[in-house]
Amino acid sequence: MARPYKIPQSVLVVVHTPALDVLLIRRADGSEHWQSVTGSKDTEQESFQSTAVREVFEETGIVCADCRLTDWELENVYDIWPAYRHRYPPGVTRNTEHVFGLLVPPGTAVRLNPREHTEHRWLNYLEAADACFSPSNAEAILMLPQFAA
Results as ranks from 00 to 15, higher is better:
16 H>L: 05
16 H>C: 04
17 T>I: 06
19 A>P: 04
19 A>V: 10
20 L>P: 08
23 L>H: 01
23 L>G: 05
23 L>E: 03
24 L>M: 14
24 L>S: 03
24 L>C: 05
25 I>S: 06
26 R>Q: 14
26 R>H: 05
27 R>K: 10
27 R>V: 00
27 R>H: 06
28 A>R: 05
29 D>Q: 02
31 S>C: 09
31 S>V: 14
32 E>P: 01
34 W>M: 02
34 W>T: 01
35 Q>I: 06
35 Q>W: 03
36 S>G: 11
36 S>F: 02
36 S>N: 15
42 D>T: 14
42 D>L: 10
43 T>G: 00
44 E>G: 02
44 E>Q: 07
47 S>H: 00
50 S>V: 03
52 A>D: 04
53 V>T: 13
55 E>G: 01
56 V>E: 10
57 F>Y: 13
58 E>A: 03
59 E>I: 01
59 E>M: 10
60 T>L: 05
61 G>N: 08
61 G>I: 04
61 G>T: 05
62 I>K: 06
63 V>Q: 11
63 V>G: 00
64 C>A: 12
65 A>G: 12
66 D>I: 06
68 R>V: 14
69 L>I: 13
70 T>Y: 00
70 T>I: 02
71 D>A: 11
72 W>Y: 10
72 W>P: 04
73 E>S: 11
74 L>I: 07
74 L>M: 09
75 E>C: 11
75 E>V: 15
76 N>T: 09
77 V>M: 08
78 Y>F: 13
79 D>K: 15
80 I>P: 00
81 W>A: 14
81 W>I: 09
82 P>C: 03
82 P>A: 15
83 A>I: 14
83 A>M: 09
85 R>V: 04
86 H>M: 02
87 R>K: 09
88 Y>D: 06
89 P>H: 07
89 P>Y: 12
89 P>E: 15
89 P>W: 08
91 G>I: 11
91 G>Y: 09
91 G>W: 11
91 G>T: 12
92 V>T: 15
93 T>R: 14
96 T>L: 04
98 H>A: 13
98 H>Y: 12
98 H>T: 10
99 V>E: 15
99 V>F: 05
100 F>C: 01
100 F>R: 01
100 F>S: 01
101 G>T: 15
102 L>Q: 05
103 L>M: 10
103 L>S: 02
104 V>P: 02
104 V>R: 00
104 V>S: 00
105 P>W: 10
105 P>H: 03
106 P>F: 00
